[in-house]
Design a protein around this nucleic acid. Sequence first.
DNA 1: CGCATGGTTGAGAGGTCTCAAGAAAGGTGG
DNA 2: CCACCTTTCTTGAGACCTCTCAACCATGCG
Lengths: 231, 231
Amino acid sequence: MIGSPSQGAVDKPHVRRLKRYGPLLDEDVAALEARLGRVETYPAGKNLELTGSPPMFLLSGWACLAHSLRDGRRQILAFLLPGDGIGFDLLTRSQRSVEVLALTPLKVRRAQAGFAAGTERLGRVFAGAAAAQQGRMIDQMVRLGRQTALERMAHLLLELHSRLAEIGEVRGETFHLPLKQEILADALGLSLVHVNRTLQQMKRDKLIDMRGAQVTLLDRSALEAASDQSS
Amino acid sequence: MIGSPSQGAVDKPHVRRLKRYGPLLDEDVAALEARLGRVETYPAGKNLELTGSPPMFLLSGWACLAHSLRDGRRQILAFLLPGDGIGFDLLTRSQRSVEVLALTPLKVRRAQAGFAAGTERLGRVFAGAAAAQQGRMIDQMVRLGRQTALERMAHLLLELHSRLAEIGEVRGETFHLPLKQEILADALGLSLVHVNRTLQQMKRDKLIDMRGAQVTLLDRSALEAASDQSS
DNA sequence: CGCATGGTTGAGAGGTCTCAAGAAAGGTGG
DNA sequence: CCACCTTTCTTGAGACCTCTCAACCATGCG
């Protein structure tokens, strides 16, 4: 439908995502592509190495950043979706013991060692992407610190829907959520059991529908009211 | 004692803090100073404007970044201590409704409009400071999502002691904590009442001592064991 | 002295957790 | 195509951590 002669019918997910944060000309896209290596794949459950390795773009699949405590408790800090950069900003390459975990099979493209943005427009767009990532971390802190289980879940589902919509991975209010309840629990600071009960309740209350990994937001206004956040 | 001929006996707090993240020559310090305006002061409780205004250094006093929900719940995202930059990184100037709140009377120095790091060494040091800030945000997420009240408090007190030690504001294990329990509550995702009880218990257990706003870490190894975080 | 602010304490409610057991779903080999 | 095993989800019951409400105490200040 929307003709985009130079890049084929649809941009690749990382390009599509980056364009949310500012205009990119074909030359910018070309400069970026030239700096990226070939596609690598990882299986679900794989722990990606970040320290010392160049940054990369996530082409397909879901990953997360997580920090584990000695006794096994784990906190997921952020979800990484197709199109997201990994290791470009300070967050994802901080020296701390932050793991990058593949939640589904992944396709990534590593950048060259010594990667730099290249063009000025690319730099601005990268900064925008990093700022967006930071904003999501703020949302996460508010969820964890000041919201109830139902509010946290509602807010996270809305965030994921919105991010997936940016890369064309929603159908209306429906999207694929490839996360075990254990993962949701570690992201939301809840127990697995309580995540389950919270989802049950949201289904009973007709806020959402879940068939397998397909989630549908049935009552967006109620979800938004629940998730508050005033942002 | 330690002679530092070019800058007087002791560096200003922001210089001292920045030097934690890499070497700075006198010319770097001079370049930085040249870009900073004169000292401004704000009273405790004042809500500082960030949007659209240039970044600044906090010379003295404590501030915090916070996000409020519509119903009045508030989450404090980070504490800002003397020597910290405000608005240099993406975090502190994100477009979101993040407030900067003076917790004590403040002295700050604004940077010029269009501020840039200036020298390469300064740029590296600024990046290091931003990374440190991000690391603290990760700690905060882990606290909020996966730690108990006592663990959160222990971890925060250790963080504050360590940061204050960097700028010479500790005497051994003792430091000045100018925070109301209400503020601690909003930082730790707890109720004011529970913060009080948690502090009482830590005093009973001889983990800490508090006389007024003076806090002493009595049992560092127990505090570290409690705060876990394995980082 | 009286008020305002911040800290302390008690009691009961409620949200979330842990433990435990089953049910459902998905993959694999025969 | 089925039996079986593993993984994931679901549900119940009781414990526990933290919350809310409410009162009271301590301190500082005009």
